[in-house]
Simulated assay, not measured.
Amino acid sequence: MIEEIKNLLHKYHILPITNARWTSFEVNLSPTSTKQEVSDVKKKIRERISKGIGGVYIIAKEEDILYIGESEHRIRYRIMRHMDKITNPTDSGSKFFKLEQHHGLLTVWFMPLPKELIRMRRTIEDMLTILLEPEYKKWELQKN
Results as ranks from 00 to 15, higher is better:
residue 47 E to W: 05
residue 72 E to T: 15
residue 98 K to D: 04
residue 68 I to T: 03
residue 128 L to T: 04
residue 82 H to V: 01
residue 18 T to E: 15
residue 11 K to N: 10
residue 9 L to S: 08
residue 80 M to T: 09
residue 100 E to A: 03
residue 109 W to E: 08
residue 43 K to R: 09
residue 51 K to F: 07
residue 144 N to F: 10
residue 66 L to R: 08
residue 138 K to Q: 08
residue 74 R to N: 13
residue 127 M to Q: 01
residue 119 R to D: 01
residue 72 E to D: 04
residue 131 L to C: 03
residue 6 K to I: 05
residue 116 E to T: 11
residue 47 E to F: 07
residue 22 W to A: 13
residue 8 L to D: 02
residue 31 P to C: 00
residue 81 R to T: 02
residue 125 E to I: 13
residue 136 Y to W: 15
residue 134 P to K: 04
residue 34 T to D: 06
residue 90 T to K: 07
residue 8 L to E: 04
residue 123 T to D: 01
residue 144 N to Y: 13
residue 12 Y to N: 11
residue 102 H to F: 12
residue 52 G to L: 02
residue 140 E to W: 10
residue 14 I to H: 04
residue 98 K to S: 01
residue 69 G to M: 06
residue 117 L to M: 14
residue 7 N to I: 03
residue 2 I to C: 05
residue 15 L to F: 07
residue 111 M to T: 08
residue 106 L to R: 14
residue 34 T to Q: 05
residue 3 E to H: 05
residue 136 Y to N: 04
residue 33 S to Y: 07
residue 114 P to D: 11
residue 88 N to P: 05
residue 5 I to E: 06
residue 9 L to W: 05
residue 93 G to K: 08
residue 85 K to C: 14
residue 17 I to S: 08
residue 1 M to P: 05
residue 6 K to T: 09
residue 117 L to N: 02
residue 58 I to W: 06
residue 78 R to Y: 05
residue 110 F to K: 13
residue 2 I to N: 15
residue 56 V to P: 10
residue 23 T to P: 03
residue 126 D to K: 13
residue 7 N to Q: 13
residue 9 L to A: 04
residue 2 I to F: 07
residue 107 T to P: 10
residue 120 M to Q: 14
residue 128 L to S: 01
residue 34 T to N: 03
residue 23 T to W: 06
residue 76 R to L: 05
residue 133 E to I: 14
residue 69 G to T: 01
residue 103 H to K: 04
residue 117 L to C: 02
residue 108 V to R: 12
residue 106 L to F: 05
residue 121 R to G: 03
residue 108 V to E: 07
residue 100 E to S: 02
residue 134 P to G: 07
residue 67 Y to H: 13
residue 97 F to W: 15
residue 123 T to N: 09
residue 52 G to H: 08
residue 41 V to Q: 00
residue 86 I to F: 00
residue 85 K to A: 14
residue 80 M to W: 00
residue 90 T to A: 06
residue 118 I to E: 00
residue 14 I to T: 09
residue 56 V to S: 09
residue 37 E to S: 07
residue 64 D to V: 11
residue 53 I to N: 07
residue 65 I to K: 03
residue 117 L to W: 15
residue 5 I to M: 11
residue 28 N to I: 11
